[in-house]
Nucleic acid binder design. Sequence first.
DNA 1: CTGAAAGCGCTTACAG
DNA 2: CTGAAAGCGCTTACAG
Lengths: 346, 346
Amino acid sequence: MDEKPRDRVSLKDLANHIGVSKTLVSAVLNGKAKQYRISEETATLVKRAARELQYSPNMVAKGLRTGNSQLIGLIVTDISNPFYSTISRIIENKTNEINYKVIFGSSDESLVKTRQLIDVMLDKGVAGLIIVPCEGSQGMIAELHKKNIPVVLIDRYFPELEVSYSCLNNFNATKQATMHLIEQGYRNIALISYKSGLSNIRDRILGYKETMNNHELGEYVNVKSVNIDHPLPEVEKALDYLVNRKNAEAVIFITNALLVAGLRSLNKLNKRIPDDVAVVGFYGSELFDLYYSPITYIKQPIDMITEEAVNTLIDKIKYGENRKFSKTFIEPELIIQHSSIKMDNV
Amino acid sequence: MDEKPRDRVSLKDLANHIGVSKTLVSAVLNGKAKQYRISEETATLVKRAARELQYSPNMVAKGLRTGNSQLIGLIVTDISNPFYSTISRIIENKTNEINYKVIFGSSDESLVKTRQLIDVMLDKGVAGLIIVPCEGSQGMIAELHKKNIPVVLIDRYFPELEVSYSCLNNFNATKQATMHLIEQGYRNIALISYKSGLSNIRDRILGYKETMNNHELGEYVNVKSVNIDHPLPEVEKALDYLVNRKNAEAVIFITNALLVAGLRSLNKLNKRIPDDVAVVGFYGSELFDLYYSPITYIKQPIDMITEEAVNTLIDKIKYGENRKFSKTFIEPELIIQHSSIKMDNV
DNA sequence: CTGAAAGCGCTTACAG
DNA sequence: CTGAAAGCGCTTACAG
């Protein structure tokens, strides 16, 4: 109950200690000594005292006065998901360079949570936001943009919005994967996806479909979309149907979680990879390299995607270029391993 | 360059709009209407206006005035590490309930970075800190505690410090693992560890050694400690030595990263699990269940460890109980799978 | 070259 | 029941 004060020394303390005004100290410490034509000696005096008394400015007060909080808000789907925690780490590194800190929140794909997160982050005075937008959040995003709050989307975008974003080229991702399987000699190629209207999912499906059609394999196009919350049972059912009934020779899983569910299911169905069915995954843990059949997967250059997003946001914050609309698609890379190699060819 | 103002309505705006004082509005909105004996009608009037004008308080200003930032600082080793990102998520959930946000930082086991992170977090006015302390950081931690800043350690602790912490019972973790292997009939059991003086590593080694000694297997005690930065080559060398030269029948890997390196190495050395060598891991990804020999591992109840840490911190913040010293060890759980079963027994 | 004053948006004694 | 005033720790015109 008795909260002892944390005896930090304030600007005032420091000024009193030296016997000058707060204005002076503030100017010196903010590197404006020259601009204010403050004498060398006074400046060094102030700097030394600041060091000796271990003065460090109260950023809250500074933020209130200048309107600059040096804080960035990050809203992801779930920080405990390795993909998003990797993004977080890269954002941390990039923003640390310019002395910003990031506060984060997980939306769990919920509109309500997204709204709450945006609100409190704004209340905390974030200078800008990096958001992995959930389905149906275009209204909120547009609103932010209209209020002239710096915001950039990552991982997903809304084509109808002129809000900057940085994403994987998801269309090319599944195009590459499908091409690779076709080149291997597979014809009956299926794809397992989520029920979702998000841009990344949509583009991944599109890349697959168009590639199939362009190779006159339209008759084999087969997309099974499962529930995002508990994919396992539905993935199992879908695979049973695709492999046992439709004779699918290869399956593309368009997220990491779907791949995990897929591998479990294929084991259960007693299907060997790639002998019974070839597999291509997405993103992927290094652990898939240790699998009995190392998994071919689409690699996302997360660092490039994220760095682009951060750079864009910083530009907006620093130069107020919120009207500048930048869209970035980073190209994927297909890592070919054992799981997608047609054994007949070997 | 022309930064448009973000036209948020302030307390003053709101007060002027209704035609009352800021004091009044502030009191009502903070639920102190009764305390200040403000009439029902005025109160409802204020509340309605607040809603209509979409007033939301500037937490920065509020924080400056009250000294309460509603911000918690979290310092982990690396936010992109799944173990720490899971911790982050749990902290997020717990703190959201009481309207706190968390700002995070990764120390990379570096004292310099830890120091920097602590400093800026303090500058940002965090109400308290949750820290995974790196080796040699006891000085900084002690300093924080002396300054009466609420801090609780997680995952690791310093026995010489009276600073609250919440950790796994690491001693029992390896004790359980070792016991299990002994019960299976293994005698020549080795352990692979990091070169580190951190409490969690130390306790894990201790649990193994004591258990071995208590079963008169002291002659087999064999701890190989590798460099934390690039474990793979050293793990491979260690395993070659342990298995091929010392005839180790079972190996305990005391972190997730070591296990991954271990599995890679055993593949390379053409050793089958558990036929040639039994394996027990730590923490563990769900992907290990999919391995050709599903891995036995020590499970950390991360949620319990983390929730305890958060609760402790919140108590300190709310009730100023920084003198209360709480140490918590959460018991591990051994998940027994295929990799540690002695085939002779089957 | 240096300082007094106002103000960022709040809360909190205090007065009436 | 309500409001004027001071102050949290800063920065920034402005005056000298």
